[in-house]
Amino acid sequence: MSSSPPSAPSARIAQLSTWQVFRAPLLIGLVAAAGLTFGLFGDGVWDGLCWLGLSVPILLALIYGARWNIGSKVAPGVAHADAGEAAS
């Protein structure tokens, strides 16, 4: 019986390039930086663009944070493996 060591990466995990890993955070950072820059330009439309640019990272954090939180919940009848350790 040959089993791979636990530290070996799973064959199912796809290898991502650096660009694939960092493009979304880079884009979010650029939008936020643009929002900060728009806030320096003036009033009126610039303020609206500032609010829009700075609200994008917050909205994305709320959307994906809620989605992650929902996905991490366990069914009511299922116990965690750590629950027995925490009780003792």
Rank of each mutant, 00 (worst) to 15 (best):
L36I: 15
Q15T: 13
P5I: 01
T18L: 12
V74G: 14
P9R: 14
P25N: 03
P25T: 02
V78Q: 15
M1S: 06
A81H: 06
S10K: 13
G35Q: 00
D47Q: 10
G42W: 06
L36M: 05
G84N: 05
G29L: 11
L26D: 04
L40M: 04
W51A: 09
A75S: 07
P6N: 14
L27W: 11
F38C: 06
H80D: 07
G84R: 06
P6G: 13
R23N: 10
I13N: 04
L26V: 14
A83C: 00
A66K: 03
L60E: 03
A87S: 09
G29E: 11
G44Y: 00
P5F: 03
G53C: 05
V21D: 00
R23Y: 14
A34N: 00
S3C: 08
I58L: 10
Q15D: 12
A81E: 09
V74E: 15
W51Y: 09
A34L: 07
W51I: 15
G53K: 10
A86L: 04
D47Y: 08
L36Y: 12
I58E: 03
I63D: 00
G44T: 05
D82W: 05
S55A: 10
P9C: 13
E85N: 08
L26T: 14
C50A: 03
N69T: 15
A34S: 06
G29K: 05
L16G: 02
G77M: 11
A34I: 10
A86N: 04
G84M: 10
P5K: 02
P9I: 15
D43W: 13
V45P: 02
R12Y: 14
S72P: 00
A24Q: 11
I28C: 14
D47E: 07
S2C: 11
W46A: 03
P76M: 01
D82E: 09
I58D: 04
L62D: 00
L52Q: 06
V45R: 01
R12G: 12
V74D: 15
F41V: 04
A24D: 13
S10M: 12
P25S: 03
G65Q: 02
G42H: 01
P6L: 14
A11P: 15
R23F: 13
S72M: 01
S2T: 07
S2W: 04
T37L: 11
G48L: 05
T18A: 15
L30W: 04
T18W: 14
G53R: 13
A66H: 09
I13G: 02
L59C: 06
